Simulated assay, not measured.
Amino acid sequence: MDMTFQEGLALVAIGGVAGFINVLSAGGSMLTLPLLMFLGLPPQVANGTNRVSIVLQSVAAVGSFRREGASHVGLSLRLSVPAVAGSVFGAWLAMQVSDTLFEAILISAMAVASVAMLLPQPRVDTRPLSSQDLSPALYLAMFGIGVYGGFLQVGVGILFMAVLYRMLRIDLAQVNVFKVFIILVYMLPALGLFVYHGHVRWGYGLLLAVGSMAGAWLAVKVNMGPRGAAWIKWLTVAVIVTIILRLLLG
C-alpha cells in the first residue's frame, strides 16, 4: 500500500500529539488507531501497527524518566508479570474477532474511556511504596489491564490511573512512571504476536513512532499541573467525539 507525503506527515504529527497525551494522561491510541484505519489499514492490521509506536514511545518515556531520576524498576517489574500474561491472551483474542466486531468494540471503548477521562480523581497522598503495598487484588487488576491492553490498548492509561490512584493512592507523577514502564514490558510480547501473524505495516508504524517518541520526550520534560492536565483531557475528548462520529457515519 503506497503512502502519500501528506499521510506520512499526518502520522508523524498525530503521533506527536498521541505520545504527549499518553505520557501525561491517557487516550493517545484513540487518535492513532482510527487514523491508521482512516488511511486504509484493516482494523486488525491497524491494531498491530499501532503497537510499534507504543513500544518505541514507551522506550523514550522510560529513558527520559530515568534520566530525570524517576524510576520504580523493581515494583514495576513485579506488576508487569501478570500484565504480560494478560496481554498475550488479549492479543490472541483480538485476532479471533471479525473486523465488524472489532470496530464496534473500538467505538464502545472510546465512548466509555471518554466519560472516564472526565470523572474526578480521588485525593491522593504522596508516599514511598514498597512490595508490601502490592496486594493480590492489584496483581489481578494488572492481569485484567494486560488483557485489555493486548486486545485493544485504546484508553488503557485510564485503567492504570483508576487502579493505581484508587488502589495505591499515589500521585499522578508516580502513576505515569509505573504506567509507561509496565506498558513497555507487556507490549513487547503482544507486538511479537501481531508481527508473527503479519498484522504490522512497519512503514506506518515507524512514522507514527517518530512523532510519538518526540511527544513522549517532551511530555516528560513538561511539569504538568492540574489545569494543564484538565485541558489535555478536554482536548482529547473533543477529538474522540469527532472520531466516533466519523466511524459511525462511515
Rank of each mutant, 00 (worst) to 15 (best):
T4S: 15
F5S: 15
Q6C: 07
Q6E: 14
E7G: 11
L9A: 15
A10L: 14
A10H: 03
L11C: 03
L11I: 07
L11G: 05
I14R: 07
G15N: 05
V17Q: 00
V17I: 11
A18N: 07
A18Q: 08
G19I: 08
G19A: 02
F20K: 06
F20W: 02
F20D: 05
I21F: 03
L24H: 05
A26N: 08
G28R: 03
M30P: 01
L33A: 09
P34D: 14
P34L: 11
F38K: 12
L39H: 06
P42K: 10
V45E: 04
G48E: 00
V52K: 02
S53G: 15
V55D: 10
V55A: 01
A60C: 12
A60H: 07
A61T: 02
A61S: 13
V62S: 09
F65M: 05
F65P: 09
F65I: 04
G69D: 11
H72Q: 13
V73Y: 07
V73E: 11
G74F: 01
R78C: 12
L79F: 02
P82N: 01
P82T: 11
A83R: 04
V88A: 09
V88C: 11
F89M: 14
F89G: 05
A91P: 01
A91V: 02
A91Q: 08
A91W: 09
A91R: 07
W92I: 12
A94S: 11
A94P: 00
A94G: 04
D99R: 01
T100V: 12
F102Q: 02
I105V: 14
I107H: 08
A111V: 15
S114M: 12
A116F: 01
A116S: 12
L119A: 13
Q121D: 09
R123S: 13
V124F: 07
L129S: 03
D133E: 11
S135R: 14
S135M: 12
A137C: 06
Y139A: 14
Y139G: 04
L140K: 10
A141C: 15
M142L: 15
F143E: 06
G144A: 09
I145G: 05
I145P: 00
F151C: 02
F151K: 04
L152N: 03
G155S: 00
G155Q: 01
G157Q: 06
F160W: 00
M161V: 13
M161H: 09
R166Y: 10
L168M: 08
R169L: 10
R169K: 15
I170S: 08
L172A: 13
Q174M: 15
V175W: 02
V175T: 10
V180L: 05
V180M: 10
I182G: 00
I182C: 10
I182L: 04
V185C: 12
Y186I: 00
L188V: 15
A190D: 03
L191Y: 03
L191C: 06
H197E: 14
H199T: 05
V200M: 05
R201P: 12
W202L: 14
W202F: 15
W202T: 10
Y204I: 00
L207A: 10
G211P: 00
S212V: 00
S212Q: 07
A214Y: 01
A214Q: 02
W217F: 12
W217K: 11
W217A: 14
L218A: 11
K221E: 10
G225R: 06
A229C: 12
A230C: 07
A230D: 09
W231R: 07
T236G: 08
I240Q: 01
V241W: 07
L248H: 12
G250C: 07
